[in-house]
Structures are given as structure tokens and as C-alpha cells.
Amino acid sequence: MKSMTGYGSAIVKCGNGEVTIEVKAVNHRFLELQVKVPHALLFMEDKIRKQVKDIAQRGKIDIVIHVEEAASTKRVLTLDEQLLDQYKEAADVIKDKIGSDSPLDLSSILLDRHIVQVEEVSSGNWNEEEESIQQGVIEALLSFNSMRVAEGQYLHQDMKNWLQKLLECCKDIELLAPKLVDRYREKVEGRIKDYIDGDSEIDDVRILTEVAILTEKMDISEELVRMRAHVDQYKHYMNQDDAIGRRLDFLLQEMNREVNTIGSKAADSSIRQHVVEMKGFLEKLKEQVQNVE
């Protein structure tokens, strides 16, 4: 089990300068990957994406690579002449429509990043440093993944504790459930006595029939069996290395459904108290599942 949150970094020193690699991630339903690399390293972006996808399946992950070059860089201005022509044509149309003789504002055009762009061009050959930088990416990802594993171990232990509390509640409810039959019988006898002459003899068959009907309606044994099965399956997934967060979330929904059914069937204050506790434990598990990959 791994957490979706984590951080890792690495620094690579090479002939062309120093490269800093940072990897950080937060929770997300799916894998959302953003890679920010300088222009000189754009040729590596696809490989970096593949490296991340090899170790992560969920989470919002940001990779930022910063370069401090040993040699100086130069800036090159590029002009989108086709877009500038369209601006001029639009200005001419506006002039004809409203009769304005105002010329195009040259300073505004120069500040428009869609028309004029300034790029830094590296003077070094970064293709020769690709292997060293790839090793740095691996180092940062290993650090990142190590943090996710450590956090996952904490989540594993915390979830294990809440699951144990759920099982203890199930056990307590099982001990209380048989006593409900006796209470139902007493209630039925009391109600029948209210409707017949106190000297008349109570029909045991009728009482047993009424009790059988009530106990069948309020039988929670199947729900308890399914709860235990869900807990076992939850523990099974917790010990896997794959992305299990969505599976655990689904199981929690099923467990919550069983608990609600137990609460609605068992008309007993003691059992309902356990149901309230179980809902609290499930809520704790749900909070932690949001962090699991």
C-alpha cells in the first residue's frame, strides 16, 4: 500500500551546469501528471513521463526541472508575422467601420506574448547529458516513492486498527442478538395479555409464531457475515502493491450499507449504539482511503 502524497528531489552536476529535479504529489482520483522542463530539455519530457507512470498510477504529480547553466545563454526574439498581419487586417476593418485614424499601438504589440516571444537558447549540448539527467530523475522518483511507501505503512497500521474495532463491534452485536428473541417474546406476551382476559390461558403456539415472524424480520446474521467478509477482503487488498484506493472505497460503501441495515433491523438500543460506533470507524477509514493510491 502506498500513499498518493509524497516528495522527492535530486541534483545533477554535469559539464553544462547543474540540474535540480523535484517531484511532488497530492491526492487525486486519477493520474494527473504535469512536467515542467526548460526549453533545452524538452527532448526528455516524454521519457520523464514514462518513468513516472512506471511507479505511480494515481495522484496529481508535478515534476519541475530547473537548470543553471555553466555557460551563458542567449535570448532570441521570435515574431509571429502571420498573426501580426491578422491584427493589422482587423485594425483596418475597425478603422473603416468607426472611422478612426488611430494607428496600431506598437508598444502593446511588442508586449503581446502571442505575437512576440523571447526564448532562452542554451549554448551547451544538453543531449550529451541525457543519461546523467535520467539518473537524476530516477533518484528523485525513488526518493518520492520511498516517502509514499513510508506514508502507506502508517495508513496500513491505522486502517488495521479501525478494522479491528469494527470486528469487535460485530462480535458484541452477535452476543446481544440472541437475547433479542427473549425480549421479543416478553413483548409479545405482554401485548397478548393486554387484549385477552387475564384469567385466560395464553396460546404458546401463537406466541412462538409471532416471535418467529419478528425474529425473521430482525435477523442480522447475514449482515454480520457479509461485514466480516468485507473486512477480510479489505485486509487482502491492503497487502497488495497495486493501486487499491478505489477498491477500498467501494468496499467501504458496501460495509456502510451493511451497518445501516443492521441498525434498521435490530430494534435494540445497545445494538444501535454499536452501529453508531461502527459508522464512526467507517468514516475514519474513508478519510484515510482518500490518501491511498
Rank of each mutant, 00 (worst) to 15 (best):
S3Y: 01
M4V: 00
M4R: 00
G17E: 13
V26G: 00
H28F: 07
R29N: 15
F30K: 14
E32G: 12
L33V: 05
K36F: 09
V37T: 15
P38N: 06
P38M: 06
L42I: 04
F43L: 08
M44F: 11
D46T: 09
D46F: 10
I48K: 04
K50R: 14
K53H: 05
D54Y: 04
I55S: 09
A56F: 01
R58W: 14
K60Y: 08
V64W: 11
V64Y: 13
I65L: 13
V67R: 02
E69L: 08
S72I: 08
S72R: 02
S72V: 10
K74Q: 11
L77M: 15
L79D: 01
L79W: 10
L83W: 09
I94M: 10
I94P: 07
K95I: 03
I98D: 01
G99M: 04
L104T: 05
D105L: 12
L106V: 15
L106I: 15
S108D: 13
I109E: 06
L111N: 15
D112C: 10
D112S: 14
R113H: 15
V116Q: 10
V116D: 02
V118M: 15
E120C: 04
E120Q: 11
V121K: 04
N125K: 11
E130S: 10
S132Y: 13
S132I: 02
V137R: 00
L141R: 08
L142R: 13
N145H: 07
R148Q: 09
E151L: 00
Q153K: 03
Q153I: 10
Y154Q: 14
K160C: 07
K160M: 12
K160R: 14
K165P: 01
C169D: 15
C169R: 05
E174V: 00
L175M: 06
L176S: 04
L176M: 09
L176E: 09
K179Y: 04
L180D: 03
R183L: 06
Y184N: 02
E186N: 02
I192C: 09
I192G: 05
D197Y: 06
D197S: 11
D197R: 12
S200L: 08
I202L: 06
I202N: 02
I202C: 02
V205L: 04
L208V: 10
I213A: 15
K217P: 01
I220W: 03
R226L: 03
R226A: 02
M227G: 01
R228D: 02
Y234T: 02
M238P: 02
D241P: 01
A243R: 07
A243I: 12
A243F: 09
I244L: 11
G245N: 09
N256A: 05
E258C: 05
V259H: 04
T261Y: 09
T261S: 07
S264A: 12
A266E: 12
A267Q: 13
S269L: 12
S270W: 00
R272M: 13
Q273N: 14
H274V: 05
H274G: 11
V275F: 03
E277K: 14
E277F: 10
K279H: 09
L285N: 05
L285E: 03
E287G: 12
E287N: 11
Q290E: 08
Q290V: 09
E293G: 00
